[in-house]
Amino acid sequence: MSRGTKKASHSRLPMIAQAGPVSLWMILFVTIPMLFIIFISFMTRGTFGGVEYTPTLTSYKTLADVIYLNVILKSLRVAVVTTAVCLLLGYPFAYYIARKPADVASRLIMLLMIPLWTNSLMRLNAWMLLFQTNGPVNKALLALGLVEKPVMFLYTDGLVLLGLITNFLPFAVLPMYSSIEKLQNAMLEASADLGAKPSTTFLRVTLPLTFPGIFSAVILTFIPALGTYTITDMLGGGKVLYIGNIIKNQFGTIRNWPLGAALSVLLLLITALLIFIYSRFASIEDMEVM
């Protein structure tokens, strides 16, 4: 698109024309389903599942129940920890890759992507095999004499957290890598030239300039970590409940669609809030999207 060469009034029409198909696609497959979910969340649960179209706030009132509040808080806590660990591990890793020559960097990125191309159920099963009562991890621990009897790793919060972190780490690294890679060496040199120690340069130049990548990493790990159910289902064994499991159950076995919808709306609101916070600090266009 020829930007800035024509006057705004002239270029608006082609812009709309170009955005048209995309908007249509978005409306059909994103906006309408989303509005439908919001709509359902305000409806009554059908006696035999399904939805009765009588408006009510029952679902939202249910959410305020202590049981649900606890699940929501716990899910938020786990998602926050997952995100924090992914950022802390991912940033140095992304930095390391970004400062390598391009060919080495692309190979390292490839390595990072490989897990994403494997089936996630397979990966989760692998974790379960590793950590089961007579799995290799326990055998190793016993052999080393570190424990006296096998540790129950399965279905614990710890293993869920480990599963979440390993699953979302690549999603955290990629956007941060792409931000750090854009950071010119000249910026770091200019900062050093003006007397800044490496730590000062990091805080005052590197971090702010790579903020868009960090924030994308937050969005890309926090939101899915909050909503996931496969990882929590398998590694948590359904013993520990998270928002994602409840939503799945409401739409599935329990067939309370309005409650599931209300929980989904809650997730939507949290996402919207995060993006709103970001927009206060930086422009949305700078955000790293993959």
């Binding site: 040199e189 200019a190 050093a192 130049v205």
Partner: peptide
């Protein structure tokens, strides 16, 4: 280290901090 020196540079491509 560069940051310890009493030397400053005006870079050819300015290198101003964009943020």
């Amino acid at each position: 280290e560069p940051y310890q020196r009493d030397v400053n540079t005006v870079f050819q491509n300015y290198s101003l901090f964009p943020h």
